[in-house]
Design a protein around this nucleic acid. Structure first.
Length: 492
RNA sequence: GGCGGCGUAGCCAAGAGGACUAAGGCGACGGUUUGCAAAACCGUUAUUCGUCGGUUCGAAUCCGACCGCCGCCUCCA
Protein backbone atom coordinates (compact mmCIF):
# COMPACT_ATOMS: atom_id res chain seq x y z
CA UNK A 1 0.00 0.00 0.00
CA UNK A 2 1.30 3.39 -0.93
CA UNK A 3 1.01 6.78 0.65
CA UNK A 4 -2.41 8.32 1.03
CA UNK A 5 -2.91 11.95 1.94
CA UNK A 6 -6.02 13.87 2.87
CA UNK A 7 -6.71 16.29 0.09
CA UNK A 8 -8.71 19.32 1.20
CA UNK A 9 -9.84 19.82 -2.38
CA UNK A 10 -11.46 16.39 -2.75
CA UNK A 11 -12.21 16.07 0.99
CA UNK A 12 -10.88 12.57 0.77
CA UNK A 13 -7.78 10.55 1.53
CA UNK A 14 -6.31 10.29 -1.95
CA UNK A 15 -3.65 7.91 -3.17
CA UNK A 16 -0.52 9.99 -3.60
CA UNK A 17 0.77 9.97 -7.15
CA UNK A 18 3.05 12.78 -8.24
CA UNK A 19 2.51 14.43 -11.57
CA UNK A 20 5.94 13.34 -12.72
CA UNK A 21 7.04 9.91 -11.53
CA UNK A 22 9.64 10.06 -8.79
CA UNK A 23 9.56 13.83 -8.40
CA UNK A 24 7.53 15.92 -5.99
CA UNK A 25 7.13 19.68 -6.00
CA UNK A 26 5.74 21.00 -2.75
CA UNK A 27 4.99 24.52 -1.69
CA UNK A 28 4.19 25.46 1.89
CA UNK A 29 2.96 28.82 3.11
CA UNK A 30 5.77 30.35 5.10
CA UNK A 31 6.01 33.14 7.61
CA UNK A 32 5.16 36.78 7.28
CA UNK A 33 8.30 38.05 8.95
CA UNK A 34 7.05 40.77 11.25
CA UNK A 35 7.50 38.92 14.55
CA UNK A 36 9.09 35.86 16.13
CA UNK A 37 7.63 32.50 15.20
CA UNK A 38 5.24 31.00 17.75
CA UNK A 39 3.85 27.58 18.64
CA UNK A 40 1.27 27.81 15.87
CA UNK A 41 3.97 28.20 13.26
CA UNK A 42 5.79 25.27 14.78
CA UNK A 43 2.89 22.90 14.22
CA UNK A 44 2.64 23.83 10.60
CA UNK A 45 6.35 23.77 9.81
CA UNK A 46 7.03 20.56 11.69
CA UNK A 47 4.06 18.84 10.06
CA UNK A 48 5.17 19.68 6.55
CA UNK A 49 8.79 19.05 7.40
CA UNK A 50 7.82 15.48 8.27
CA UNK A 51 5.91 15.23 5.00
CA UNK A 52 9.00 16.30 3.04
CA UNK A 53 11.18 13.93 5.07
CA UNK A 54 8.84 11.00 4.57
CA UNK A 55 8.53 11.61 0.84
CA UNK A 56 12.33 11.55 0.65
CA UNK A 57 12.42 8.41 2.77
CA UNK A 58 10.10 6.84 0.20
CA UNK A 59 12.63 7.75 -2.46
CA UNK A 60 11.02 10.77 -4.08
CA UNK A 61 13.13 13.61 -5.33
CA UNK A 62 11.45 16.45 -3.46
CA UNK A 63 11.71 20.14 -4.19
CA UNK A 64 10.40 22.01 -1.20
CA UNK A 65 9.61 25.69 -1.61
CA UNK A 66 8.49 27.90 1.24
CA UNK A 67 7.91 31.60 0.86
CA UNK A 68 9.10 34.39 3.11
CA UNK A 69 6.51 37.14 3.05
CA UNK A 70 8.22 40.47 3.45
CA UNK A 71 5.73 42.69 1.68
CA UNK A 72 2.07 42.84 0.82
CA UNK A 73 0.44 41.10 3.78
CA UNK A 74 -2.05 43.63 5.04
CA UNK A 75 -3.36 43.89 8.58
CA UNK A 76 -6.82 43.56 7.15
CA UNK A 77 -8.01 41.03 4.59
CA UNK A 78 -10.61 43.38 3.21
CA UNK A 79 -7.65 44.96 1.45
CA UNK A 80 -7.66 47.92 3.77
CA UNK A 81 -5.28 48.62 6.60
CA UNK A 82 -1.53 48.79 6.49
CA UNK A 83 1.14 46.35 5.47
CA UNK A 84 2.06 44.22 8.48
CA UNK A 85 5.75 44.63 7.89
CA UNK A 86 5.48 48.38 7.53
CA UNK A 87 3.41 48.68 10.66
CA UNK A 88 5.78 46.56 12.74
CA UNK A 89 8.76 48.47 11.34
CA UNK A 90 7.22 51.72 12.42
CA UNK A 91 6.76 50.38 15.95
CA UNK A 92 10.30 49.04 16.14
CA UNK A 93 11.73 52.08 14.39
CA UNK A 94 13.48 50.04 11.74
CA UNK A 95 13.49 50.03 7.99
CA UNK A 96 10.91 47.46 6.83
CA UNK A 97 13.57 45.43 5.05
CA UNK A 98 15.77 45.45 8.16
CA UNK A 99 12.82 44.25 10.20
CA UNK A 100 12.03 41.53 7.67
CA UNK A 101 15.66 40.41 7.63
CA UNK A 102 15.79 40.30 11.42
CA UNK A 103 12.70 38.13 11.73
CA UNK A 104 13.69 35.97 8.79
CA UNK A 105 16.89 35.07 10.62
CA UNK A 106 14.91 34.50 13.80
CA UNK A 107 12.60 32.19 11.88
CA UNK A 108 15.45 30.06 10.54
CA UNK A 109 17.08 29.97 13.95
CA UNK A 110 13.91 28.57 15.51
CA UNK A 111 13.04 26.10 12.78
CA UNK A 112 16.63 24.85 12.75
CA UNK A 113 16.27 24.14 16.45
CA UNK A 114 13.04 22.29 15.76
CA UNK A 115 15.13 20.18 13.39
CA UNK A 116 13.15 21.19 10.33
CA UNK A 117 15.08 20.55 7.16
CA UNK A 118 15.48 23.85 5.37
CA UNK A 119 13.32 24.29 2.30
CA UNK A 120 15.25 23.96 -0.96
CA UNK A 121 14.13 27.45 -1.90
CA UNK A 122 12.95 30.20 0.47
CA UNK A 123 11.91 32.90 -1.96
CA UNK A 124 11.11 36.42 -0.76
CA UNK A 125 8.01 38.18 -2.02
CA UNK A 126 9.96 41.42 -2.43
CA UNK A 127 12.38 39.64 -4.73
CA UNK A 128 9.63 38.69 -7.15
CA UNK A 129 7.92 42.00 -7.84
CA UNK A 130 8.59 41.80 -11.56
CA UNK A 131 6.97 38.38 -11.83
CA UNK A 132 4.03 39.55 -9.76
CA UNK A 133 3.46 42.51 -12.03
CA UNK A 134 3.58 40.14 -15.01
CA UNK A 135 0.89 37.93 -13.48
CA UNK A 136 -1.33 40.92 -12.78
CA UNK A 137 -0.92 42.03 -16.39
CA UNK A 138 -1.81 38.56 -17.64
CA UNK A 139 -4.97 38.58 -15.54
CA UNK A 140 -5.89 42.02 -16.87
CA UNK A 141 -5.25 40.88 -20.44
CA UNK A 142 -7.42 37.83 -19.97
CA UNK A 143 -10.22 39.86 -18.49
CA UNK A 144 -10.14 38.46 -14.97
CA UNK A 145 -9.02 41.69 -13.35
CA UNK A 146 -9.79 45.39 -13.50
CA UNK A 147 -7.91 48.52 -12.59
CA UNK A 148 -9.32 51.31 -10.45
CA UNK A 149 -7.35 54.36 -9.35
CA UNK A 150 -3.96 52.67 -9.58
CA UNK A 151 -5.06 49.48 -7.85
CA UNK A 152 -5.90 46.22 -9.57
CA UNK A 153 -8.52 43.79 -8.32
CA UNK A 154 -9.38 40.24 -9.25
CA UNK A 155 -12.98 39.93 -10.29
CA UNK A 156 -14.21 36.85 -8.47
CA UNK A 157 -17.42 36.67 -10.51
CA UNK A 158 -15.33 35.86 -13.57
CA UNK A 159 -13.89 32.73 -11.99
CA UNK A 160 -16.78 30.29 -11.65
CA UNK A 161 -14.93 27.82 -9.48
CA UNK A 162 -14.14 30.32 -6.74
CA UNK A 163 -14.99 28.63 -3.45
CA UNK A 164 -14.25 25.07 -4.53
CA UNK A 165 -11.50 24.56 -1.98
CA UNK A 166 -13.18 26.02 1.07
CA UNK A 167 -16.71 25.00 0.13
CA UNK A 168 -17.92 28.54 0.38
CA UNK A 169 -20.50 30.23 -1.71
CA UNK A 170 -19.63 33.86 -2.23
CA UNK A 171 -23.23 35.04 -2.30
CA UNK A 172 -24.17 33.32 0.94
CA UNK A 173 -21.13 34.67 2.67
CA UNK A 174 -22.02 38.29 2.19
CA UNK A 175 -24.90 38.31 4.62
CA UNK A 176 -23.13 37.89 7.94
CA UNK A 177 -19.61 38.88 6.97
CA UNK A 178 -18.16 41.86 8.70
CA UNK A 179 -15.98 42.82 5.81
CA UNK A 180 -16.13 46.46 5.01
CA UNK A 181 -16.38 47.00 1.33
CA UNK A 182 -13.89 49.15 -0.44
CA UNK A 183 -15.57 51.60 -2.77
CA UNK A 184 -13.22 50.69 -5.59
CA UNK A 185 -14.34 47.08 -5.77
CA UNK A 186 -17.06 45.89 -8.05
CA UNK A 187 -17.95 43.22 -5.53
CA UNK A 188 -16.95 42.75 -1.87
CA UNK A 189 -15.48 39.34 -2.70
CA UNK A 190 -12.99 40.81 -5.18
CA UNK A 191 -9.47 40.94 -3.86
CA UNK A 192 -6.46 43.12 -4.47
CA UNK A 193 -3.76 41.99 -6.87
CA UNK A 194 -1.93 45.29 -6.79
CA UNK A 195 -2.37 48.18 -4.39
CA UNK A 196 -1.65 51.79 -5.12
CA UNK A 197 0.89 53.24 -2.69
CA UNK A 198 0.55 56.61 -1.10
CA UNK A 199 3.64 58.78 -1.71
CA UNK A 200 4.93 58.28 1.85
CA UNK A 201 4.52 54.51 1.80
CA UNK A 202 8.00 53.08 2.27
CA UNK A 203 7.67 49.92 0.24
CA UNK A 204 6.57 50.67 -3.29
CA UNK A 205 7.55 49.78 -6.81
CA UNK A 206 6.79 51.21 -10.24
CA UNK A 207 4.19 49.36 -12.29
CA UNK A 208 2.05 49.91 -15.38
CA UNK A 209 -0.63 51.23 -12.99
CA UNK A 210 1.61 53.62 -11.11
CA UNK A 211 3.64 53.12 -7.96
CA UNK A 212 2.35 50.47 -5.62
CA UNK A 213 2.90 47.10 -4.04
CA UNK A 214 1.58 43.57 -4.60
CA UNK A 215 -1.40 42.00 -2.88
CA UNK A 216 -0.62 39.23 -0.43
CA UNK A 217 -2.17 36.30 -2.29
CA UNK A 218 -0.17 37.02 -5.39
CA UNK A 219 3.25 35.99 -4.16
CA UNK A 220 2.39 32.36 -3.52
CA UNK A 221 0.95 31.91 -7.00
CA UNK A 222 3.92 33.59 -8.62
CA UNK A 223 6.67 31.90 -6.67
CA UNK A 224 5.19 28.42 -6.79
CA UNK A 225 4.70 28.81 -10.54
CA UNK A 226 8.20 30.11 -11.05
CA UNK A 227 9.99 27.34 -9.15
CA UNK A 228 7.63 24.39 -9.44
CA UNK A 229 5.60 24.97 -12.60
CA UNK A 230 1.97 25.77 -13.38
CA UNK A 231 0.65 22.68 -11.62
CA UNK A 232 2.32 21.56 -8.42
CA UNK A 233 1.92 18.33 -6.49
CA UNK A 234 1.39 19.57 -2.97
CA UNK A 235 0.49 22.90 -1.46
CA UNK A 236 0.51 22.98 2.32
CA UNK A 237 -0.48 25.53 4.87
CA UNK A 238 -2.49 26.28 7.97
CA UNK A 239 -6.20 25.66 7.96
CA UNK A 240 -6.95 29.30 8.61
CA UNK A 241 -5.42 30.14 5.26
CA UNK A 242 -7.76 27.88 3.35
CA UNK A 243 -10.02 30.87 2.98
CA UNK A 244 -9.46 33.38 1.64
CA UNK A 245 -5.75 33.01 0.91
CA UNK A 246 -5.67 29.65 -0.83
CA UNK A 247 -8.94 30.21 -2.59
CA UNK A 248 -7.51 33.39 -4.07
CA UNK A 249 -4.31 31.65 -5.08
CA UNK A 250 -6.34 29.08 -6.99
CA UNK A 251 -8.37 31.77 -8.73
CA UNK A 252 -5.32 33.78 -9.84
CA UNK A 253 -3.24 30.84 -10.91
CA UNK A 254 -5.88 28.87 -12.74
CA UNK A 255 -7.30 31.95 -14.43
CA UNK A 256 -3.83 32.90 -15.65
CA UNK A 257 -2.56 29.46 -16.64
CA UNK A 258 -5.74 27.68 -17.64
CA UNK A 259 -4.39 24.67 -15.76
CA UNK A 260 -5.02 23.11 -12.36
CA UNK A 261 -2.90 24.88 -9.74
CA UNK A 262 -2.44 22.18 -7.12
CA UNK A 263 -3.02 18.42 -7.13
CA UNK A 264 -3.06 17.88 -3.35
CA UNK A 265 -4.02 20.63 -0.94
CA UNK A 266 -2.99 19.83 2.62
CA UNK A 267 -3.95 21.82 5.69
CA UNK A 268 -2.75 21.46 9.22
CA UNK A 269 -5.07 22.21 12.12
CA UNK A 270 -4.67 24.96 14.64
CA UNK A 271 -3.05 25.32 18.01
CA UNK A 272 -4.55 26.36 21.29
CA UNK A 273 -2.80 27.18 24.55
CA UNK A 274 -4.41 25.96 27.75
CA UNK A 275 -7.51 25.19 25.72
CA UNK A 276 -7.89 28.61 24.21
CA UNK A 277 -7.00 30.16 20.94
CA UNK A 278 -3.58 31.70 21.11
CA UNK A 279 -3.82 35.44 20.91
CA UNK A 280 -1.80 38.40 21.96
CA UNK A 281 -4.69 39.78 23.96
CA UNK A 282 -5.25 36.56 25.94
CA UNK A 283 -1.76 36.58 27.39
CA UNK A 284 -1.25 33.03 26.15
CA UNK A 285 0.74 33.92 23.08
CA UNK A 286 3.93 31.89 23.29
CA UNK A 287 6.81 32.30 20.87
CA UNK A 288 9.21 29.46 20.20
CA UNK A 289 12.01 31.37 21.86
CA UNK A 290 9.90 31.64 25.00
CA UNK A 291 9.03 27.96 24.87
CA UNK A 292 12.70 27.03 24.51
CA UNK A 293 13.78 29.25 27.39
CA UNK A 294 10.73 28.99 29.62
CA UNK A 295 10.42 32.77 29.79
CA UNK A 296 6.64 32.90 29.86
CA UNK A 297 4.28 32.97 32.79
CA UNK A 298 2.32 29.99 31.47
CA UNK A 299 5.44 27.83 31.51
CA UNK A 300 7.20 26.32 34.53
CA UNK A 301 10.43 25.65 32.64
CA UNK A 302 12.13 25.76 29.26
CA UNK A 303 11.60 22.85 26.91
CA UNK A 304 13.94 21.11 24.55
CA UNK A 305 13.02 22.11 20.98
CA UNK A 306 12.88 18.45 20.02
CA UNK A 307 10.49 17.78 22.90
CA UNK A 308 8.22 20.41 21.38
CA UNK A 309 8.63 18.72 18.03
CA UNK A 310 7.73 15.41 19.62
CA UNK A 311 4.61 16.87 21.22
CA UNK A 312 3.53 18.12 17.80
CA UNK A 313 4.07 14.68 16.28
CA UNK A 314 2.23 13.02 19.16
CA UNK A 315 -1.03 14.12 17.62
CA UNK A 316 -2.21 14.17 14.02
CA UNK A 317 -1.47 17.20 11.87
CA UNK A 318 -5.16 17.58 11.04
CA UNK A 319 -6.18 17.53 14.70
CA UNK A 320 -6.06 20.65 16.80
CA UNK A 321 -3.23 20.64 19.31
CA UNK A 322 -3.42 22.13 22.77
CA UNK A 323 -0.16 23.31 24.24
CA UNK A 324 -0.11 23.31 28.01
CA UNK A 325 2.75 23.19 30.42
CA UNK A 326 1.65 19.70 31.47
CA UNK A 327 1.60 18.45 27.88
CA UNK A 328 5.03 19.95 27.22
CA UNK A 329 6.36 18.41 30.41
CA UNK A 330 5.10 14.97 29.38
CA UNK A 331 6.63 15.38 25.94
CA UNK A 332 9.94 16.37 27.51
CA UNK A 333 10.00 13.20 29.62
CA UNK A 334 9.11 11.08 26.63
CA UNK A 335 11.73 12.75 24.49
CA UNK A 336 14.38 12.11 27.11
CA UNK A 337 13.36 8.49 27.31
CA UNK A 338 14.00 8.07 23.59
CA UNK A 339 17.28 9.99 23.73
CA UNK A 340 18.56 7.95 26.65
CA UNK A 341 17.75 4.71 24.87
CA UNK A 342 19.57 5.80 21.72
CA UNK A 343 22.58 6.96 23.72
CA UNK A 344 22.69 3.69 25.64
CA UNK A 345 22.64 1.65 22.42
CA UNK A 346 25.41 3.73 20.88
CA UNK A 347 27.50 3.59 24.03
CA UNK A 348 27.30 -0.19 24.09
CA UNK A 349 27.97 -0.30 20.37
CA UNK A 350 31.33 1.26 21.03
CA UNK A 351 32.24 -1.60 23.35
CA UNK A 352 30.55 -4.56 21.72
CA UNK A 353 32.44 -7.36 20.06
CA UNK A 354 31.90 -8.36 16.47
CA UNK A 355 28.97 -10.56 15.71
CA UNK A 356 26.03 -11.13 13.43
CA UNK A 357 22.68 -9.60 14.28
CA UNK A 358 20.29 -11.76 16.25
CA UNK A 359 17.70 -13.02 13.77
CA UNK A 360 14.81 -12.79 16.19
CA UNK A 361 15.62 -9.16 16.87
CA UNK A 362 15.94 -8.44 13.17
CA UNK A 363 12.48 -9.91 12.62
CA UNK A 364 11.08 -7.66 15.31
CA UNK A 365 12.75 -4.66 13.75
CA UNK A 366 11.25 -5.54 10.39
CA UNK A 367 7.80 -5.75 11.96
CA UNK A 368 8.30 -2.35 13.59
CA UNK A 369 9.38 -0.84 10.29
CA UNK A 370 6.27 -2.16 8.61
CA UNK A 371 4.03 -0.76 11.32
CA UNK A 372 5.77 2.56 11.00
CA UNK A 373 5.33 2.73 7.25
CA UNK A 374 1.71 1.65 7.41
CA UNK A 375 1.02 4.44 9.88
CA UNK A 376 2.84 7.07 7.87
CA UNK A 377 1.21 5.92 4.65
CA UNK A 378 -2.15 6.58 6.25
CA UNK A 379 -2.09 10.34 5.86
CA UNK A 380 0.99 10.69 8.08
CA UNK A 381 -0.25 9.15 11.30
CA UNK A 382 2.73 10.36 13.29
CA UNK A 383 1.04 9.48 16.54
CA UNK A 384 1.23 5.79 15.71
CA UNK A 385 4.64 6.23 14.07
CA UNK A 386 5.90 7.70 17.31
CA UNK A 387 4.44 4.82 19.27
CA UNK A 388 6.60 2.53 17.10
CA UNK A 389 9.65 4.48 18.21
CA UNK A 390 8.63 3.87 21.82
CA UNK A 391 8.30 0.17 21.07
CA UNK A 392 11.78 0.36 19.64
CA UNK A 393 12.92 1.98 22.87
CA UNK A 394 11.56 -0.94 24.83
CA UNK A 395 13.20 -3.36 22.43
CA UNK A 396 16.49 -1.50 22.86
CA UNK A 397 16.17 -1.84 26.62
CA UNK A 398 15.64 -5.58 26.32
CA UNK A 399 18.60 -5.91 23.97
CA UNK A 400 20.84 -4.13 26.45
CA UNK A 401 19.48 -5.93 29.48
CA UNK A 402 21.14 -9.27 28.67
CA UNK A 403 24.51 -7.62 28.34
CA UNK A 404 25.66 -9.77 25.46
CA UNK A 405 24.15 -8.16 22.40
CA UNK A 406 26.36 -8.39 19.33
CA UNK A 407 27.57 -5.40 17.36
CA UNK A 408 25.33 -6.60 14.54
CA UNK A 409 22.22 -6.48 16.69
CA UNK A 410 23.11 -3.13 18.21
CA UNK A 411 23.80 -1.72 14.78
CA UNK A 412 20.43 -2.84 13.48
CA UNK A 413 18.67 -1.18 16.39
CA UNK A 414 20.66 2.00 16.00
CA UNK A 415 20.03 2.07 12.27
CA UNK A 416 16.27 1.98 12.83
CA UNK A 417 16.52 4.76 15.39
CA UNK A 418 18.39 6.81 12.81
CA UNK A 419 16.08 6.09 9.89
CA UNK A 420 12.65 6.22 11.51
CA UNK A 421 13.30 8.36 14.56
CA UNK A 422 15.92 10.55 12.92
CA UNK A 423 15.51 10.82 9.16
CA UNK A 424 11.72 10.72 9.12
CA UNK A 425 10.43 12.05 12.43
CA UNK A 426 13.46 14.12 13.33
CA UNK A 427 13.35 13.44 17.06
CA UNK A 428 16.49 11.30 17.21
CA UNK A 429 19.77 13.12 16.73
CA UNK A 430 22.72 11.87 14.71
CA UNK A 431 25.05 12.86 17.53
CA UNK A 432 24.37 13.75 21.12
CA UNK A 433 26.57 16.23 22.91
CA UNK A 434 29.05 14.64 25.18
CA UNK A 435 30.46 16.04 28.35
CA UNK A 436 34.06 16.83 27.71
CA UNK A 437 34.45 20.23 26.16
CA UNK A 438 34.85 23.67 27.62
CA UNK A 439 32.84 24.46 30.73
CA UNK A 440 31.19 21.08 30.60
CA UNK A 441 34.57 19.40 31.04
CA UNK A 442 35.39 21.53 34.05
CA UNK A 443 32.03 20.86 35.63
CA UNK A 444 32.53 17.19 34.99
CA UNK A 445 35.88 17.27 36.78
CA UNK A 446 34.34 18.95 39.83
CA UNK A 447 31.37 16.60 39.97
CA UNK A 448 33.71 13.62 39.71
CA UNK A 449 35.56 14.74 42.82
CA UNK A 450 32.28 14.65 44.72
CA UNK A 451 31.36 11.32 43.19
CA UNK A 452 34.67 9.93 44.41
CA UNK A 453 33.97 11.30 47.92
CA UNK A 454 30.64 9.51 47.89
CA UNK A 455 32.21 6.31 46.60
CA UNK A 456 34.70 6.47 49.42
CA UNK A 457 31.88 6.85 51.95
CA UNK A 458 29.98 3.95 50.38
CA UNK A 459 33.02 1.69 50.47
CA UNK A 460 33.24 2.37 54.17
CA UNK A 461 29.48 1.85 54.57
CA UNK A 462 28.97 5.46 55.67
CA UNK A 463 25.67 5.51 53.76
CA UNK A 464 24.32 8.55 55.55
CA UNK A 465 27.27 10.56 54.33
CA UNK A 466 26.95 9.10 50.83
CA UNK A 467 23.25 9.95 50.64
CA UNK A 468 23.87 13.44 51.91
CA UNK A 469 26.31 14.04 49.08
CA UNK A 470 23.86 12.66 46.56
CA UNK A 471 21.02 14.81 47.91
CA UNK A 472 23.10 17.94 47.82
CA UNK A 473 24.20 17.25 44.28
CA UNK A 474 20.56 16.68 43.40
CA UNK A 475 19.68 20.06 44.85
CA UNK A 476 22.36 21.55 42.62
CA UNK A 477 20.73 19.86 39.64
CA UNK A 478 23.05 16.88 39.33
CA UNK A 479 21.48 13.42 39.26
CA UNK A 480 23.66 10.41 40.01
CA UNK A 481 23.19 7.00 38.48
CA UNK A 482 25.11 4.02 39.82
CA UNK A 483 25.85 1.54 37.06
CA UNK A 484 27.94 -1.63 37.05
CA UNK A 485 30.70 0.43 35.41
CA UNK A 486 30.71 3.11 38.07
CA UNK A 487 28.72 6.21 38.83
CA UNK A 488 27.45 8.41 36.00
CA UNK A 489 25.92 11.85 36.33
CA UNK A 490 23.60 14.01 34.30
CA UNK A 491 21.78 17.30 34.70
CA UNK A 492 18.33 17.06 36.20
C1' G B 1 -25.77 34.87 10.95
C1' G B 2 -22.85 31.27 7.44
C1' C B 3 -19.22 27.11 7.40
C1' G B 4 -16.21 23.33 9.80
C1' G B 5 -14.20 20.38 13.75
C1' C B 6 -13.94 18.02 18.48
C1' G B 7 -15.70 15.35 23.25
C1' U B 8 -11.67 8.14 24.31
C1' A B 9 -8.31 6.45 31.43
C1' G B 10 -5.72 11.51 36.47
C1' C B 11 -3.39 14.21 31.91
C1' C B 12 -1.78 14.10 26.39
C1' A B 13 -3.34 11.01 22.30
C1' A B 14 -4.28 6.91 18.23
C1' G B 15 -8.31 3.99 16.60
C1' A B 16 -13.58 5.56 12.35
C1' G B 17 -18.59 -0.90 11.40
C1' G B 18 -16.33 -7.45 13.50
C1' A B 19 -8.20 -9.40 15.06
C1' C B 20 -11.11 -3.41 20.36
C1' U B 21 -12.12 -7.83 26.62
C1' A B 22 -9.54 0.36 22.89
C1' A B 23 -2.19 1.72 20.50
C1' G B 24 1.59 4.80 22.47
C1' G B 25 3.35 8.70 25.90
C1' C B 26 3.17 11.27 30.80
C1' G B 27 1.80 10.32 35.79
C1' A B 28 0.67 6.77 39.67
C1' C B 29 1.25 1.95 41.90
C1' G B 30 3.62 -3.13 42.47
C1' G B 31 7.91 -6.41 41.18
C1' U B 32 13.26 -7.38 39.50
C1' U B 33 17.84 -4.70 40.44
C1' U B 34 20.21 -1.43 44.41
C1' G B 35 23.09 -0.51 51.06
C1' C B 36 18.93 2.99 49.89
C1' A B 37 18.00 5.56 45.40
C1' A B 38 18.28 6.80 40.21
C1' A B 39 18.23 4.55 35.45
C1' A B 40 16.68 0.13 33.09
C1' C B 41 13.47 -4.09 32.66
C1' C B 42 8.66 -6.74 33.88
C1' G B 43 3.62 -5.90 35.36
C1' U B 44 -1.03 -3.11 37.00
C1' U B 45 -3.78 1.35 35.91
C1' A B 46 -10.82 2.78 30.37
C1' U B 47 -15.83 -4.05 30.66
C1' U B 48 -15.62 1.29 28.12
C1' C B 49 -15.27 5.66 24.23
C1' G B 50 -19.98 13.41 26.34
C1' U B 51 -25.63 12.14 27.14
C1' C B 52 -30.04 9.87 25.32
C1' G B 53 -32.26 7.33 21.42
C1' G B 54 -31.97 4.73 16.49
C1' U B 55 -29.78 1.53 12.35
C1' U B 56 -27.22 -3.33 12.46
C1' C B 57 -26.33 -10.23 13.79
C1' G B 58 -22.48 -6.63 15.60
C1' A B 59 -21.13 0.64 17.01
C1' A B 60 -15.94 4.26 20.24
C1' U B 61 -16.72 3.83 14.94
C1' C B 62 -23.02 4.98 10.97
C1' C B 63 -27.78 8.19 11.82
C1' G B 64 -30.71 11.71 14.96
C1' A B 65 -31.47 14.83 19.12
C1' C B 66 -29.34 17.12 23.20
C1' C B 67 -25.20 18.97 26.32
C1' G B 68 -20.21 20.88 26.41
C1' C B 69 -15.74 22.75 23.99
C1' C B 70 -12.96 24.82 19.83
C1' G B 71 -11.93 27.03 15.14
C1' C B 72 -12.76 29.70 10.33
C1' C B 73 -15.69 33.67 7.88
C1' U B 74 -11.48 40.19 11.26
C1' C B 75 -5.56 39.94 12.83
C1' C B 76 -3.23 35.04 13.09
C1' A B 77 0.31 29.27 10.63
Amino acid sequence: MGLKVYNSLTRNKDEFEPIEAGRVGMYVCGPTVYGHAHLGHAKSYVSFDVLARYLRYLGYNVTYVQNITDVGHLTDDADEGDDKIVEAARKEKKHPMALAEYYTRSYFEDTDKLNCVRPDISPRASGHITEQIELVQTLLDKGYAYEVNGSVYFEVAKFAEYGKLSGRNVDEMQAGARVEVSEDKKSPADFALWKKAEPNHIMQWPSPWGRGYPGWHLECSVMSMKYLGATIDIHGGGLENQFPHHECEIAQSEAANGAAFVKYWMHNNMVTVDGQKMGKSLNNFITLKQAFSGAHERLTRGYDPLAIRQLILNSHYRSPLDFSDAALFAAQSGYEKISEAVKAIRKRLGEAGEGEADEKIVDELTALTERFQTAMNDDLNTSVALSVIFDLVRLAGRVLEGGKATAGTLNSVDRLFRELGGDVLGVVKDEYEQAGSGDEARTDAVVRILIEQRAEARRNKFFAKADELRDKLDEAGVVLEDTPDGTEWRWK
